[in-house]
Amino acid sequence: MTSQTIIAARGLNHWFGHGEARKQVLFDIDLTLARGSFTVLMGPSGSGKTTVLTLLGCLRGVQDGSVQAMGQELHGAGDAQLTKLRQRMGFIFQSHNLHESLSALQNVIMGVQVRPGVDDALARRAGAHALGLVGLSDRLDYLPANLSGGHKQRVAVARVLVGNPAMVLADEPTAALDKDSAADVVDLLKRLGTQRGTTTLLVTHDPRILDRADSILTLEDGKIVSCTGGRTGSRA
């Protein structure tokens, strides 16, 4: 694993269930994500895309094979190690998961406010800066109910930005957005790679964003069947 590699999976297999109900859902997944790259993972429903995302994002344990994330092996890693790695990652989902009773700014800073050494004033400055980066400087005090779907997803992106993650994992973040809003969200994520060296892995069914990807992986029946582009390595 080189200094330019942030994720490397080799021979990754995964099962769900137990006994006779046990079913293999991933088969010998090999992939490498380069620092600063923007990778799209595509495939039909049930192909294993979200399972790959949760394994690489330290949201579930690696059962078989090797996954190295930011230089650390995940197979056999304990809860404390996985938690520390997750703190260096940002997660965006189809549902923006905003707290309806909190303003856009409050939603963005609620995670950083609990960090040691971060007072309210610093958190608010960082949150306002992040919302400015996504074009919402004039909506800091808006409640989610008063924001469009595209603006809510921008708040979710700002919430990731404020933590300055090494890697962003996004699961269908554009599915509920119109074409222009979807393009805005993807362009914001791509700028993270250019400006901060952040690696993004985005799971999607959305063909509208494929031309913005550095690389596209296609998953079928738990196997990588194709890879296009040059900044992500994979081997089915």
Rank of each mutant, 00 (worst) to 15 (best):
E20V: 12
A21D: 04
A21Y: 00
A21F: 00
A21G: 04
R22L: 10
R22H: 04
R22W: 02
R22N: 09
V25E: 06
D28E: 12
D28C: 07
D28N: 15
I29A: 09
R35W: 02
R35K: 15
G36Q: 07
G36M: 11
F38G: 01
L41D: 06
G46N: 05
G46R: 08
S47E: 04
S47T: 05
S47H: 04
K49T: 02
K49R: 09
T51C: 05
T51Y: 01
L53N: 05
L53F: 03
L55Q: 02
L56K: 07
C58L: 12
C58E: 05
C58H: 03
L59S: 08
R60H: 09
G61I: 05
V62R: 01
Q63I: 11
D64C: 12
G65Y: 01
G65W: 02
V67M: 10
A69K: 04
M70S: 10
M70G: 09
G71Q: 08
G71R: 06
G71K: 10
Q72M: 13
Q72R: 14
Q72S: 14
E73Q: 15
L74F: 10
L74C: 14
L74N: 07
H75N: 11
G76P: 01
G78W: 02
D79A: 13
A80E: 14
A80K: 13
Q81L: 15
Q81S: 14
L82H: 06
L82T: 04
L82V: 05
L82D: 08
T83N: 11
T83D: 13
L85A: 13
L85E: 03
R86M: 12
R86N: 07
Q87D: 11
R88K: 15
M89W: 00
M89T: 00
G90E: 04
F91T: 00
Q94I: 01
Q94R: 02
H96K: 03
N97P: 00
L98P: 00
L98C: 09
E100I: 11
S101M: 10
L102P: 00
A104Y: 09
A104G: 07
A104C: 11
L105C: 11
Q106V: 08
Q106S: 15
Q106A: 15
Q106N: 13
Q106L: 09
